[in-house]
Design a protein around this nucleic acid. Structure first.
Lengths: 345, 345
DNA sequence: CTGAAAGCGCTTACAG
DNA sequence: CTGAAAGCGCTTACAG
C-alpha cells in the first residue's frame, strides 16, 4: 500500500526510516552486490511501502544513470516513425527507462540534437532513427554515451560514426523477393521509383534493384522520384508518356509512392491490376486497403531491437563488446496490385 | 564558431571566463532583469562562443526549470496519437523544451505514469493525451506542476482533475455537421457505431448523435462497436441481418471503424457508395484513399495548442490565470462514401 | 547590480 | 558489509 506523501520522499528518508545511510540505500538502488541480504530487504521494503522512486535528475547529475534515453527522429510522417518509436518505447518501458523524444526538422537540426545528447549528463544513451546522409557526412561528435542507429549505417569504414550499433533491414534480400515475384508474373521491363538520395534504405534499394537487374539480364530502369508523392506522380507521368515499349512493372521505394502511382494511373484510365504490376514497401495500413503488393517492414521490431541493443550495453551486459549490426528481414506480402495480364505461368 | 570542448563546459566555466560569478551567470540564464547590460552581453557572448548549454538535470534538481515536459499517451495506434505528439513536439521544440514521452499500456500504467510525473522534480509540466475514463475516475495525484489534458475532460465539477487546462474538439458541432449532411442526402434511418465507453470523444459523439436525432425526429440508433475493428464489423453484420427496415446511413465513431464497415459491406455484395451512406471521423490518410466522407480532426493543432497552453503557464505568462478550456472545430470532408441513392435534391 | 554559501537528491571513492 | 564526505551543475535566498 503506497501512502501518498505530502512531500517528495527521498533517498535520505529511506535511509533514516531503515536506520541505514544514504550510501547503503544508494547501493541497493544500484544493485550493488555487497549489501547484506537483511539490510537489502529492509530497504527494499521501505522503498516499496513509501512508493519511493529515485529522482532521475539527481541520479543523472551525480554521475549515475538517469534512466533516460534520447531518441532523435527526422520527422513524423508516414506511420513509419511512429511505429519505430512505439517499438523503442515498449522495450524501454519494460526496463523502466524513459524516452526523451525529439523530432528534428532538417539535417541541421538533427545534427544539433545529436550534438546536444552527445554531451555527458544529458541522457544515458541515444537512439538515432534514420539519420540522413547529410547528417552522417559530418563528423560525429565525440561522446561518452553509447549510440544506436536505426535504419541507417555510416558509409565509410573508419568513419567517426562507425562505432555505433545499428539495426537495419535487409534491403538486398527484400528487393530480390520483389523482383523474383515480378519475374514470375512475367514482368520484364521494370522501373524502380527510387526514394530520396539522403535516405539509407532508398539508396540500398536502388543499388539492390540495379544489381539484381544486371544479374538477371532484366531491363531495369531507375527513376528518382524526389521527396514527395507529387514528385513521384510527375515522374511516373513522364515515364508513361515517353515510353515506346511499355513498362510492365513499377517497383516503388515505399507504399506512399506506390499508392500515389496506382491512383494516378487509374485516373489516367490504366486498368489496374492487370495492365502492369505495381509494388510498394513498408506494408502500411493503407497498403492493405488498396490491395498493394508490398514488402512488410518490421517497424516495431526495428525499434525494439534498437532499444534492446542500447539497454544491454548500458546494463553492462555488453559493456566492452564489439559493435553489433543487426539486420532484420522484410517479407513479401503478395496482393492484387502485382498481378500482370501477361502472366505466363 | 563553436569550439568543441573536450570536457563538458559548465556554468562555472562561463563565470570564470567572464570574470563574474555563478550567481550572475545563472541570472542571465534565468532571464533575470537585474543584470547590468554590459555584463549580460559579455556572458551571453561567452556562452555562445563556447556552445554552452546548461544541464537540464542540474537545473531541474536545483529547483529551476529543467526544460522538460512529460507527455503520456495511451498507446500508439491509428496515426492519431503520432500526429498529436508531432504537434506537441513542434511547439515545444520551438521554445527549446524537450519531451519525455511515455506510452502507457492500459489505464493502470497510464495512471502510474501520471503519478510519477506529478511528483516534484520529474518534469516542468505534463501533457495527458486522451486519458481514459478509468483513469479520470481515480483521484488525481496532487502535484506542484501544471497539467494539460488533450482530447478529454474530467466529468465532475469539483473533480480533482478539474484544475487542468484542456484542449478538445467540438464533437457536438462535428456530429451536427455530419448529420445535417446525411439528412440532405435523404438518409432517415441512421445508426451510430459508437466507440469505446472509456473514450471521451466516443462518449461525446454518442451523446451528440442521440440528442441530434431526437431533436430532429430522426430514427437514430446507437450501436456499441466495442474496441476493435473486428468488433465493429460483427456489430454491423448483426445490424444488417436483423433489420426489417433497412438502415440508410452509418455514422462510425472513427475512420477505422468506417473503413472496416465499408470493406465488409462490399464483400457482402452491398453496392457502395449508393446503397447506404457511411461516414467516419478523423480524416486519416486512409480515408482519402477509399473516398470516405469524414470529419477532419485537427490532430497536430490539438498537440500544438496543448503545448502552448502548458508552456505559457510555465513561462509565467499565464501563471495565476484561471483554467482554460480550448475547443477546436472539426470540419466535414465530403467524399463519395456518403452518397445515398435516394438522394432527393 | 553582484558574489559567497547552502542546498537540490543522488553516486562515488575513501575509510573503517 | 557500512558510513561520512565530497561533488555533480545548477538555483535561490542572503548579504552587500
Amino acid at each position: 500500500m503506497t501512502s501518498s506523501p505530502k512531500h517528495k520522499i527521498t533517498l535520505y528518508d529511506i535511509a533514516r526510516l531503515t536506520g541505514t545511510s544514504k550510501s547503503t540505500v544508494s547501493r541497493v538502488l544500484m544493485n550493488a552486490t555487497d549489501v547484506a541480504e537483511p539490510t537489502r530487504q529492509k530497504i527494499l521494503d521501505a522503498m516499496a511501502q513509501h512508493g519511493y522512486t529515485p529522482s532521475r535528475f539527481a541520479r543523472g547529475l551525480a554521475g549515475g544513470r538517469s534512466g533516460m534515453v534520447a531518441v532523435v527522429l527526422p520527422g513524423m510522417y508516414s506511420g513509419y516513425y511512429a511505429e519505430v518509436l512505439k517499438g523503442i518505447a515498449v522495450a524501454a518501458h519494460q526496463r523502466g527507462v524513459r524516452l526523451i523524444t525529439s523530432i528534428a526538422h532538417g539535417p541541421d537540426e538533427y545534427f544539433g540534437l545529436v550534438a546536444e545528447y552527445a554531451e555527458p549528463g544529458r541522457a544515458d544513451g541515444v537512439i538515432l532513427v534514420s539519420p540522413a546522409a547529410e547528417v552522417l557526412r559530418r563528423k560525429a561528435p565525440p561522446s561518452p554515451v553509447p549510440f544506436v542507429m536505426v535504419s541507417a549505417r555510416p558509409v565509410g569504414r573508419d568513419d567517426s560514426w562507425g562505432r555505433m550499433d545499428t539495426v537495419t533491414v535487409d534491403n538486398e534480400g527484400g528487393m530480390a523477393e520483389v523482383l523474383d515475384h515480378l519475374r514470375e508474373q512475367g514482368c520484364r521491363r521494370l522501373v524502380h521509383l527510387a526514394g530520396p538520395a539522403g535516405n539509407y534504405d532508398a539508396v540500398a534499394r536502388r543499388r539492390a534493384f540495379d544489381s539484381y537487374c544486371s544479374r538477371h539480364g532484366l531491363a531495369g530502369q531507375v527513376q528518382s522520384a524526389g521527396d514527395t508523392n507529387a514528385d513521384a506522380i510527375r515522374e511516373v507521368r513522364e515515364l508513361m508518356r515517353h515510353k515506346s515499349v511499355p513498362v510492365d512493372g513499377i517497383v516503388a521505394f515505399n507504399d506512399d509512392f506506390a499508392i500515389a502511382v496506382v491512383r494516378h494511373l487509374r485516373e489516367q484510365g490504366v486498368r489496374l491490376p492487370g495492365a502492369l504490376a505495381v509494388t510498394g514497401c513498408d506494408d502500411e495500413h493503407a497498403a492493405g486497403l488498396i490491395d498493394l503488393t508490398t514488402l512488410h517492414m518490421p517497424m516495431v521490431e526495428l525499434g525494439e531491437e534498437a532499444a534492446r541493443l542500447l539497454l544491454d550495453r548500458l546494463d553492462g551486459r555488453r559493456a566492452g563488446l564489439s559493435t553489433r549490426h543487426v539486420m532484420l528481414n522484410m517479407t513479401l506480402v503478395v496482393r492484387a496490385s502485382s498481378f500482370f495480364k501477361c502472366h505466363i505461368n
